[in-house]
Nucleic acid binder design. Structure first.
Lengths: 205, 205
DNA sequence: CCTCTAAGATAGAGCCACTATCCAATGAAT
DNA sequence: ATTCATTGGATAGTGGCTCTATCTTAGAGG
């Protein structure tokens, strides 16, 4: 198919598609000749992934390019997914001068996780430290409950990504899944807080 | 104190402070006379809140104004905190045409939460529906584990916000707390996934 | 031959959160 | 008394980001 059809089938304007081509997010179509290119179903899928990463997960163009470039360079799937994690966790965040805790390490031991991925563990340690420095204490039994919940879902998510036929699919599943779980937590927390507030202030039993 | 000192003590440029004044995020200082105004500690605190809501929670100016305007209008603290929730949950999100589930209601029953806040419950129902529509299934025992974890922290957070001496403090605690918990979940999930992946692919026991 | 569409290049638009400049007014410092 | 610093108020400009539009050249199919 050519550009126009690609645009119609994805709902993305030709101008935007050209932009994504320029930015290297979308691989060029096969050049039939100098002024005609042909695109495939893979391009449609790729555009859907770009849309999801942009507008659901809220990544910027550069972050998306970094992930997709790895995939296009034929990097092993696990490496690509590690990159997805790194970007979604936003490891570039500057935590400043908080004194680290080792609470994350404790979680790893508690859950009996193999502690190889130091990126994610460091991110967790840093994050817990930041929360503590903000006066949000995290007792071990809370970390226990969180990690237990997350332990269950991780195996399942892994099945999902492993079942993905293409690396592109795996990227989408992983990124959207992480984001959605985090948002789910936000919504549950809100509901829990609202419920507790009602119980505490509205019913002086 | 006057503007210059306010700027020095918060590290925010006078130009930005004027901008926040213009946008109605920061109440004007008490006018000593036509060309001199005096600011108080409250203004310092307010600026810190604005910074946190902007750069940690990533709210935009309009969202911040909506929240702070309620506080300045003397709205009851619970109403202001409900607004904080609404904004952080981003209820404006357009979920489109997913068929709702009642899984959120089930969670409410399971946890024995009083089901008065329909905003948060609707948000949860919608979110679960969106996840299901994306192929992310959420078995009841996962929702059980999530909600159990969150149930514990909600009471504690409520203590924190209740202990806040000012509504401004309560806003800060609530907004930053919600955001931080959600990010914590993201980081734990990443670590769990990494651990599962290692266990599955690196040790073919 | 005429029209459609392509690639490629470049420029412009629109939003957002600042940031800078200019002004008249005015108390404070010397 | 005069100079200086600073204010409120107004207005305009900047920089980053994601598109969006225009223009050119060129080939293909009807």
């Amino acid at each position: 198919m050519q550009l126009k059809e690609l645009s119609e089938r994805t709902g993305i304007t030709p101008a935007s598609i050209k932009y994504y081509l320029r930015e290297g997010l979308l691989p060029p179509g096969e050049a039939v000749h100098a002024t005609r290119a042909s695109y495939t179903e893979r391009h449609i899928k790729r555009l859907q992934i770009i849309q999801a990463l942009r507008h659901i997960v809220h990544l910027n163009i550069e972050q998306i390019r970094g992930i997709l470039a790895m995939a296009d360079d034929g990097a092993p799937r696990l490496a690509v997914l590690a990159q997805v994690q790194r970007v979604v966790l936003d490891l570039a965040v500057d935590d400043g001068d908080v004194t680290r805790t080792r609470a994350g390490d404790a979680v790893v031991r508690l859950r009996n996780w193999p502690d190889a991925d130091s990126d994610a563990r460091d991110a967790l340690n840093r994050h817990i430290a930041v929360m503590e420095s903000l006066g949000i204490t995290l007792p071990m039994d809370l970390l226990d409950a969180y990690s237990r919940a997350v332990d269950g879902v991780a195996g399942f998510d892994l099945d999902l990504t492993a079942a993905s036929t293409s690396t592109d699919d795996a990227i989408l599943t992983a990124a959207v899944g992480m984001h959605m779980h985090s948002q789910l937590m936000l919504k549950m927390l809100a509901l829990a807080q609202a419920s507790h507030a009602i119980r505490r202030f509205d019913s002086p039993t």
